[in-house]
Design a protein around this nucleic acid. Structure first.
Length: 475
RNA sequence: GGCGUGGUAGCCAAGUGGUAAGGCAAGGCUCUGCAAAAGCUUUAUUCGUCGGUUCGAUUCCGACCCACGCCUCCA
């Protein structure tokens, strides 16, 4: 089965095929490393991860490139504030980003190029654009892309240049014509930024003097270097559709003359938090650490982030995280039951979680079909639960479990990941209460038994009955 | 102003021109001294509002209401 994905460029569902018939080239806009990434960022990275995993499950080899933006206004400003070099500062957040990605079970891209290590490639492209008349330098040593020279500009986002030009106020309410440099047109965007005092030591030499690259050019230059002039897929958050991706197309196609530079455009919707737009000012901008500190596991967070369709705005709530925990537990329970029926160990089952599976005549065929239909994760999850419900009449086979393993690979969900057991010391006092309660119960003195259980509860411990005795758990 | 998305049970969320997947929560039952856990089970005559097309619309069309996104560096 082939994977069909909604393509922003064609505005319809297109089947994904590698251009060269072998390896699918996929470029994703990575993080700007000036602080910890938030769950909104991770929603996008999770969606891209599910895309990659599903492609692999359909038998396609993927070359995944995701950049690190380690130079821009924010990284420069924050590093200088701390008196650190740009590299010192950005590496710290890059490392943090990678730790978070691992926790969320995001597959590592094969290549993770840094913007600062590809200045030459970016300059080469800018030079080419100037030579071809698509860009011009200004008096302050900056270089701008000339939108008027690109007749195709706007084809991805569907925005018309004339509307851009008449736009006087941007979404933040700021004047849009605040033209600090001598741009020919307010919509022209920076390819190279002339050095300013606030840049500190962060500058590179160019034919137009010292400065640093603009934001959009890094993705064009690095994607081209690692994937070629025309590659398969480019992904990012929906907000990047315009201007970032529109500008990338303008840069890449103008520089190379090759069109399309990208065949499929993959955009994921944003998330809301408790029904509100996520923003720093509302205090609802959560990082992974914020949530794990509250006791939510990364697996649970991942489940929540992918449980809504990627093109649908997701309302991220704490109730949703709780729901995810219960849903995962149910999935584990059903799976475990099947494993026991078939005499398969958890360890063996884990080897089934791999990008290979045969879904033909499997009860999980519908779930796989849902994944292949524009990554319909909510439907796929529904089909998985339905399959387990049906298994009461027709027990699942080993082949079914292998198919389930394939789906779990695509979703990137982990089962049977025991939370690392921190050995909790049960106070002797509590054990004694439990022992006394057991005796009281055996003597049918239930009033006393209940009192003792209550006492333990007051101390923060829960006593439950088992077949042979009792069990003590932390409340 | 331009472009776009969405409104489905208490919450989350699929879906289809032929009468509403799934998850969570809640209720009932079994088990249990009672709980917990576990198992079984029930829960939308209805899909924002009003019209239209149709034998039939939640699904198509129109209008309206509401929410949200993008319109220069925010995933």
């Amino acid at each position: 089965m082939t994977l069909g994905i909604f393509n922003t460029l064609t505005r319809k569902k297109d089947e994904l095929h590698p251009k060269d018939g072998k390896t699918f080239g996929m470029y994703c806009c990575g993080p700007t490393v000036y602080g910890p990434a938030h769950i909104g960022n991770f929603r996008t990275f999770c969606a891209q991860d599910v895309l990659r995993r599903t492609l692999e499950l359909t038998g396609i080899k993927v070359m995944h490139v995701r950049n690190i933006t380690d130079v821009d206004d924010k990284t420069i400003r924050e590093s200088r504030k701390l008196g650190q070099t740009l590299t010192e500062f950005t590496r710290r957040w890059e490392d943090k980003f990678h730790k978070d990605c691992d926790a969320l079970n995001l597959l590592k891209p094969q290549v993770e190029p840094r913007a600062t290590e590809h200045i030459k490639e970016q300059l080469d492209m800018i030079i080419k654009l100037v030579e071809k008349g698509y860009a011009y330098a200004t008096a302050d040593g900056s270089v701008y892309f000339k939108i008027a020279a690109d007749l195709d500009y706007g084809k991805l986002s569907g925005l018309e240049v004339k509307n851009l030009e008449t736009q006087t106020v941007n979404s933040a309410g700021d004047a849009n014509n605040a033209d600090e440099y001598a741009r020919e047109n307010v919509s022209d965007f920076a390819l190279w930024k002339g050095r300013k005092p606030e840049d500190g030591d962060n500058f590179w030499k160019s034919p137009w003097g010292e400065g640093r690259p603009g934001w959009h050019i890094e993705c064009s230059a690095m994607a081209q270097k690692y994937l070629g002039d025309s590659f398969d897929l480019h992904g990012g958050g929906i907000d990047l559709c315009f201007p970032h991706h529109e500008n990338e197309i303008a840069q890449s196609e103008s520089a190379t003359g090759v069109s399309p530079c990208v065949r499929y455009w993959f955009h994921s919707a944003h998330l809301m938090v408790e029904g509100e737009k996520m923003s720093k000012s509302l205090g609802n901008l959560y990082t992974l650490d914020d949530l794990t500190a509250k006791g939510y596991s990364p697996n649970q967070i991942r489940f929540t982030l992918i449980s809504g369709h990627y093109r649908q705005q997701l309302n991220f709530t704490f109730k949703g995280l709780e729901d995810a925990k219960s849903a995962i537990a149910k999935l584990e329970k059903s799976t475990l039951q099947t494993l026991q029926n078939l005499g398969i160990s958890e360890a063996e089952f884990k080897t089934f979680i791999a990008p290979k599976a045969n879904f033909e005549n499997s009860v999980f065929e519908a779930a796989f079909a849902a994944m292949c239909d524009d990554l319909n994760v909510p439907k796929a999850l529904g089909e998985i639960f339905s399959a387990f419900a049906k298994s009461k009449e027709t027990p699942l086979t080993k082949a079914d479990l292998e198919a389930l393993g394939g789906l779990l690979y695509a979703l990137g969900l982990k089962l049977f990941e025991r939370e690392e057991k921190t050995e909790i010391e049960i106070p002797a006092e509590v054990t004694e209460l439990a022992q006394k309660r057991l005796e009281a119960k055996q003597a049918k003195d239930y009033a006393l038994a209940d009192t003792l259980r209550k006492q333990a509860a007051d101390l923060g411990w829960i006593i439950t009955d088992t077949k042979t005795g009792f069990e003590i758990k932390k409340a």
